[in-house]
């Protein structure tokens, strides 16, 4: 079919297409590639502009310093904890509600849906939320990192769409005839048939927790409780932790250069969990967007 339809214009189109997408690939990959080679290069060589496309003066001093910085590991540990527990809470809140709203025989469905959807477009804002959190005694506790963002309404709608499309009404009717209760049906039939959406949701929420910077910034005070992203902020944009990472006998300019080298390394260290997981989970994220698009 293609061969018949290929006009001269199409050949030109294809060539331009390849060129544009190749340039795009370069633009997407190069910044990350540069940071990788810079993190492994001699800081002086980076300053001299010798690190453009290859490592110059192989050097892992930055990584050594990062390994010996307790803040980063505390941040890693905290983020891991917040992410794991937080995601479980998210699933517990989102999945049953989404299933319930997917049912045609739920009376008052539109009103309940409206209550949820309204919050997507209008909210109390930063200060009233802050006062609430303080009054609930959640300020500066690990709980706030777990409960904040407990329900993402958009995610709930995506899950609801999945249930609407994938759980046929006949299945429910059959189970009802067999005397199944709604809870039994949900736990024994719906959940096993919905592993895909649960995986998608776990990943959406999980990445959200891992990358969450806002909650830690606003609601945490103790450095011991900081998630990784807040620690990273201190290193990458505030130069606070950096001072502790110096040995003290370097000159100011020397320190500047080492600081840069540490920054390159920290960016890589922060991205490693994502880079390892990404190839395996990519298709789930795409699937999530696709399910969302069915109704959107």
């Amino acid at each position: 079919m293609r061969a018949i339809g290929k006009t001269k214009g199409d050949v030109i189109f294809d060539i331009i297409n390849y060129v544009i997408l190749s340039i795009l690939l370069l633009v997407l990959v190069y910044p990350i590639y540069f940071i990788v080679i810079a993190s492994l290069s001699d800081p002086h060589a980076i300053y001299r502009g010798e690190v453009i496309y290859k490592i110059a003066g192989f050097n892992i001093d930055g990584y050594t310093r990062i390994l010996h910085t307790p803040q980063i590991w505390i941040g890693y540990r905290n983020s891991l904890l917040y992410m794991t527990v937080g995601t479980l809470v998210n699933l517990f809140i989102t999945i049953p509600a989404a299933y319930s709203l997917s049912r045609k025989d739920l009376i008052g469905k539109n009103i309940i849906m409206g209550i949820f959807v309204f919050t997507m477009f209008f909210g109390g804002g930063l200060i009233p939320t802050f006062i609430l959190i303080r009054d609930l005694n959640l300020y500066n506790t690990p709980w706030i990192m777990i409960i904040m963002g407990g329900l993402n309404v958009y995610n709930m709608i995506v899950s609801r769409t999945f249930f609407q499309v994938n759980i046929p009404n006949e299945l429910l009717e059959a189970a009802k005839i067999d005397g199944s209760t709604n809870t039994y049906f949900f736990l024994r039939i719906v959940i096993p048939l919905s592993k895909a959406i649960i995986a998608v949701m776990a990943l959406y929420y999980g990445v959200g927790h891992w990358n969450n910077f806002f909650t830690g910034l606003i609601y945490l005070k103790d450095k011991e409780l900081y998630p990784l992203q807040v620690v990273l902020r201190d290193i990458l944009t505030q130069n606070q932790v950096l001072a502790d990472m110096m040995s003290g006998d370097e000159s100011f300019i020397e320190q500047q250069k080492i600081a840069d080298s540490i920054k390159y390394g920290v960016i890589i260290v922060a991205c490693i969990p994502m880079l390892i997981l990404y190839p395996f989970v990519q298709r789930y994220f795409v699937k999530g967007v696709m399910i969302g698009a069915i109704k959107g």
Binding site: P96, L101, P128, T129, M156, N182
Partner: peptide
């Protein structure tokens, strides 16, 4: 008959009321 479906909604509604509607009240 479907009271369980409403129980399924309780965690989500509680969350949204506490963390979204109370701050709206705080406006």
């Amino acid at each position: 008959e479907n009271y369980e479906l409403y129980l399924f909604l309780v965690p989500a509604l509680l969350y949204i009321i506490i963390f979204h509607y109370i701050p709206i009240y705080g406006i």
